[in-house]
Amino acid sequence: MGWVSKVEIISLGTLISALTWSSILSLMAIGITLLYRTTKVPNFAHASFVTTGVYSATIVSLMGFHPYLGMFLGFILGGLEGLVLFYAILEPLRRRRSSIFILMIATLSYDILLYGLLNVLADDLQTTYKILARMIYYSRLDFSIGGVPGVAVISLLALITTVILLYILLNRTTLGVALRACMENTALAQTLGINVSLMLLFSWFIAGGIAGVAGALLPFYTMCGPYIGMLYIAEMFCASILGGLDQIYGAPLGGFLIGFAKVALISVLASFVGPWITEYAPIIPLAAMAVALVLVPKGLVAIKIRRG
């Protein structure tokens, strides 16, 4: 009896919402993990890459297209932001053999810079187009398949497509194999004639692009403003760490665990103790990360590998 009633507590709507959020969060986390693998730096500017995706959707919709098409613009703009960060800031620092800690501050400062620019953009959109550019929400523009909101389907498809493409890229193309070689042993890759900085630059474009895609999906899920990336940056890192910062395909695992823990668990809790608890939802990912760091600092995927 207890089991059945607990299942009923999680409504189908909550599960779909959890699925959507997990997919979007996974897309965000994949980029963080990829960059950590290639450049060995936690990229704090990922927050703004995601927000850039949000405004890509806004721009596309102002141009008269469906905001879902913002995914493509988001990929390009996010990718370009990653490209600029690596080429203009990180690469000169790397050449000076700066410590990882200096690189982290550099990504933090780039995030602040982009945050300022995104706010300027939002102000500009607000005055020029008379839209509420700090309250971007496209839920009413979304389609639905038998009651399931389109964003759930699109996010999951975007995630699956991304993972498959990434797998093909890394395992079936010369470029990808070279990138993997750089991830594993930069010095050796260099001696084989692989242009390591070019490979890293490429990884920053890809990671920024994926973050942009995730950002473009976000306004279909929740109300967005220039702050939205910063709001979720802690959660992105939680997902990435939970999956294992060294495991690219661990990121979706972390994303789904964190996403479901946050959305589904909190709704179960809410039905027991009251709806006030939902305001504390952001604490769940952090708690999960804290537990993971203490028990399995290398991430969940590492457990499987150690056994196998």
Partner: peptide, 24 residues
């Protein structure tokens, strides 16, 4: 055409990067 406070963010972001690269 926008709130001055954002200029703060943009400039400070750039200044930090410059310090890191040229006078760490």
């Amino acid at each position: 055409p926008f709130d001055v406070v954002w200029l703060d963010y943009i400039l400070l972001g750039i200044i930090t990067a410059i310090i890191l690269i040229y006078r760490p």
